[in-house]
Amino acid sequence: MTLKEIDMNEVYNNDPELKKEDVNNLKEWIEKQPHLPHVSELQVALFLQSCYYSNEMAKYTTDTYFTVKTLCPEIFGTRDPLNPLVKTAMDCVVITPLPKLTPEKYLVVLVKMMDFNPDNYNFAAQLKCFDMITLLHLHQYGPAKGVIIILDLKGIVFGHFLKLGVVVMKKFLYYLQEGMPIRLKSLQFFNIVPFMDKILAMMKPFMKKELIDSLVLHNDVSTVFKYIPIDILPQEYGGSCESLPILQEKYKARMIDNGEFFKFQESQTVDESKRPGKPKNISDVFGMEGTFKKLEVD
Rank of each mutant, 00 (worst) to 15 (best):
F189V: 04
V147C: 05
I148P: 00
L217R: 08
D220V: 05
D197V: 13
D220M: 06
K208V: 11
P194A: 02
L151H: 08
S214C: 04
E249Q: 15
Q248R: 14
G179E: 09
L164M: 15
V166H: 14
L151D: 03
V157H: 13
G159R: 07
K163E: 08
M180C: 09
Y251P: 01
D197K: 15
F189W: 08
P205Y: 11
I246L: 14
F262C: 00
I246Y: 06
P143G: 01
K198Q: 09
K226H: 12
F158Y: 15
L176E: 08
P205W: 11
I192R: 03
F189A: 05
I256Y: 00
V168Y: 11
I199Y: 06
V216W: 04
F161R: 07
I246M: 13
Q248S: 14
A253C: 05
G155W: 02
G179K: 10
D213I: 05
I156P: 00
V166I: 14
F190H: 14
F262I: 01
G165K: 15
S243W: 08
A201Q: 11
I150W: 00
D213C: 08
L244P: 02
L247F: 06
Q248L: 07
L233W: 02
N191C: 12
S214N: 05
D197H: 15
C241P: 13
V221C: 14
K204C: 05
L187V: 09
G155R: 08
G142H: 00
D213K: 14
L162H: 12
Y174M: 10
I246E: 13
Q177H: 10
G239L: 07
I212Q: 12
I230H: 12
K163A: 02
A144G: 04
G239P: 11
Q188K: 12
D152M: 06
N191G: 13
G179D: 09
V168K: 15
E249N: 15
G259W: 03
D152Y: 08
M169Y: 03
N258E: 02
M180A: 10
P234G: 05
I232H: 02
M203F: 11
S214P: 04
D152Q: 06
I192K: 04
C241H: 04
G239R: 12
K145V: 06
G239N: 10
V216M: 08
L162F: 12
S186F: 05
K198M: 07
K226T: 08
I192T: 14
I212W: 10
I148C: 01
I212C: 09
A253E: 09
K145F: 03
E178L: 04
P205G: 09
E249C: 10
K154G: 10
F206K: 13
K250I: 01
